[in-house]
Amino acid sequence: MDFTTSYLGGVLICLITGTAHGLDITSQGSTSIEMASGQSVKLDCQFTLASQDSGPLDIEWSLVASDNQKDDKMVILYSGDRAYEDYYPALKGRVHFNSPDPKNGDASINLTGLKASDTGTYQCRVKKAPGFGSRKILVTVMVKPSKPRCYAEGPTQVGKDVVLKCVSTEGTIPLQYTWEKTSDSKLLPASALLDPVGGSMNIRNASNSYSGTYRCTAKNRVGMDECVLQLDITPPPNTAGIIAGAIIAVLLVLIIIAIILFCCCRARYKKKYEKEISYEIREDVPPPKSRVSTARSFTSVGSQRSSLGSMSPSNLHEYALKPQYDKIPSVEDYERPPSHAPLPPPVNVKVGGPNLSRMGGIAVMIPAQNRDGSIV
């Protein structure tokens, strides 16, 4: 506080007395500098001392705050015959005094590897009591345009409106775009409309003569870059042919799909049919019919023959009158169901034992039978 009070008192005394002999900033260069990013810049701050400036030398470089409510940021300091360069982290390693010994009257500094964030007002203050001097320099770090990209927007056909675009993704505004034709007559089409800010060129009612090589240049106050575009204006396509080709292609696709579906369905049906046939029971010969009637017929025939054997000659004449007993039943009669086979008439022939002996017969026990011919 005492040093500051005495320093300010000395400055006031010099101003009041109008002393012409004291510390003086002698730099006369521009106080506004525009530089491209990545470059280096020297901020000039030359000074001279007077004989009465006998105090210690202090040199301060600060970045003035754009808002009055904020404090200035110290960038670099020289005090006590020593330089201090690590005050401002954003410029650490990129700010240095121009002279190895600023006491010789050179308080200038160098900023290297400039960035857009380095833009601001830098103030140089030199103090050597009772002398004092300062100088402000506005530094604007601009980004030069990046290499633009050239392309045609929309169809490039005869009779159509063709739009050429040129876009640079980086660069400090304002950017300015220019178009030129580098082939043939090197003249832009008469119907071309240029937009130097947006970077577009609209060509109305394009023709074959508009084909060629075009170059677009993007620039600002600190740099420029360019791109090249080859424009080919083509005849309009045969719409009818395209439609016919599209229809034929669709029909072919539908036919192919139909064939594939048909083959799949046929294969599936065939597989299903073979599977059903493999499980089907085949009958090569019809099943045999019931032999119950045949057995019954044979039983009836046996019974009749037994009856004939037990009859007397007198009874045979009566029995011979009945033709149904003269033939042996056929196979059809054997196979005919009992319900349809004719039943022989009942024979009530009774032969006694004595008569049977005289006839030379032998008594045989015949088992009893029911009407169906079954043995009881």
Rank of each mutant, 00 (worst) to 15 (best):
Y319E: 02
Y78T: 02
D225G: 04
K128D: 00
I257M: 07
E170T: 09
I173D: 10
V285P: 02
W179C: 03
P196Q: 09
K92E: 14
V253I: 14
D372L: 04
A129N: 07
W61F: 11
T156Q: 15
G352P: 01
S357W: 10
R215Y: 00
F298P: 00
K92L: 11
T234N: 05
Y122M: 01
H96Q: 15
Y122P: 04
Q39V: 02
S200M: 09
N208T: 13
P130S: 08
G353F: 15
C227W: 01
Y334N: 01
V197W: 00
G38S: 05
D81S: 13
I256N: 05
V143Q: 15
L194K: 13
F3V: 10
R149F: 07
N98G: 12
N205Y: 09
V351H: 02
E280C: 03
C264D: 05
N220V: 07
A50T: 05
T299N: 14
S183W: 06
K42C: 03
L43M: 09
P346L: 11
K219Q: 14
L91T: 08
N98K: 12
S40F: 03
A320G: 06
A218G: 08
G80A: 13
D195F: 11
V285M: 12
V301R: 09
S27V: 06
P344S: 11
I137K: 05
G171V: 04
R221F: 11
T156C: 13
P288E: 10
N315I: 02
G9D: 14
Y87M: 11
D232C: 03
I259S: 02
P338N: 14
S40C: 08
S134H: 12
F97I: 07
V349D: 08
D44V: 05
W61R: 09
G18P: 02
P346V: 15
K165I: 12
P174I: 08
K144Q: 12
K115W: 11
R282Y: 15
D195G: 07
G223Y: 12
Y269Q: 13
G360W: 06
L114Y: 10
L8M: 06
F47I: 00
A218C: 12
D24T: 10
L77Y: 02
A129M: 11
V197F: 05
Y334D: 05
I277R: 14
G309D: 12
P323F: 04
S62D: 08
I259L: 15
S293I: 02
V250D: 03
I366E: 14
G373C: 03
L49F: 00
E276A: 14
L229E: 00
Q46D: 06
P237K: 12
A206M: 09
